[in-house]
């Protein structure tokens, strides 16, 4: 059941997107997200859709799998959209008791829904096609310039990669402990709120104990192998830009230019109301 959460997991593959330099993918995701929020027009969304479609197709990740990743955040999205829908001031079009929907609210809610969906899809393509290790590698190298400002980039990247590495381990562990307690008659799936919260104790205590034990073991193992932070540390696989990476940067630039052109020259008149 926990395995159903696909969001943020790596989806093994060998497509061109998988093989791109992680820095490129990070930049691409950033460009994409910024473009979503900077250019909020129907034509911009169409272009973004096209871009996503191209990337998804080349990445060879089943669309079903990507959409499944949206499920866990659906409720969150719904709440955001509802808040926007009801709480935006403006021209009222529908009123019920103390709640009123405004034209601006509807427009805003639609924008929000589209942006959030694309934001999640965009960033999940990043995590689907990039192993946690290369992701943090990319971050570390890409943000290396921050070292000048005494930001501990390596340490942050290391913490991130450890945290990411531990997510599936802890999920497995949760599953195992749940089963073990269910074998002793624990019931996680029924009863009222209080009973359910209480039922979590036999799950959470062993989970925390094991998380601390693992953290401790890992720290010891790292130290005994001579880990002492980032200074002077070299990489086994240094990141090198290749032709496909340059091509990807160019594609990004083209995407951005198109977005800007669309903003100034193409106006699809949409009158929602």
């Amino acid at each position: 059941m926990l395995k159903d959460i696909t969001l943020g997991q790596y989806y093994p593959g060998n497509s061109i997107i998988h093989r791109l330099d992680p820095r490129v993918k990070l930049m691409g995701t950033m460009v994409f997200i910024v473009s979503l929020f900077a250019f909020g027009s129907v034509s911009a969304y169409l272009l973004a859709t096209l871009a996503i479609a191209v990337v998804v197709t080349t990445s060879k990740i089943p669309l079903k799998y990507i959409l499944k990743g949206l499920k866990p955040v659906f409720v969150l999205m719904l709440i955001t959209v509802l808040f926007n829908l009801f709480l935006t001031p403006g021209r009222t079009v529908w009123k019920f008791w103390k709640l009123s929907i405004t034209a601006e609210g509807i427009r805003f809610a639609i924008h929000m829904a589209v942006r959030l969906t694309y934001l999640i899809i965009g960033s999940s393509i990043l995590t689907f096609t990039t192993t946690p290790n290369s992701l943090t590698d990319g971050l570390e190298t890409g943000l290396g310039f921050l070292n000048v400002f005494h930001v501990p980039v390596h340490e942050i990247a290391m913490m991130m990669s450890i945290a990411l590495r531990f997510i599936p381990i802890l999920m497995d562990e949760t599953d195992k402990i749940m089963r073990a307690q269910e074998a002793r008659g624990a019931d996680f799936h029924s009863g009222g709120l209080i009973r359910r919260v209480k039922a979590m104790v036999p799950l959470l205590v062993p989970l925390f104990v094991s998380a601390f034990r693992r953290a401790n073991d890992l720290a010891l193992a790292m130290e005994s192998r001579g880990y002492h932070g980032g200074a002077g540390r070299t990489k086994m696989k240094p990141l090198v830009y290749r032709r496909r990476d340059v091509a990807a940067y160019i594609a990004m630039a083209v995407y951005l230019i198109l977005m800007i052109l669309l903003k100034f020259f193409v106006k699809i008149p949409v009158n929602i109301l």
């Binding site: 195992k176 402990i177 073990a180 307690q181 074998a183 002793r184 104790v201 036999p202 062993p206």
Partner: peptide, 12 residues
């Protein structure tokens, strides 16, 4: 009654 592998990890 099922005793899991490394059952000590379920003690709470």
């Amino acid at each position: 009654g099922l005793v899991f592998q490394y059952p000590e990890y379920q003690i709470f």
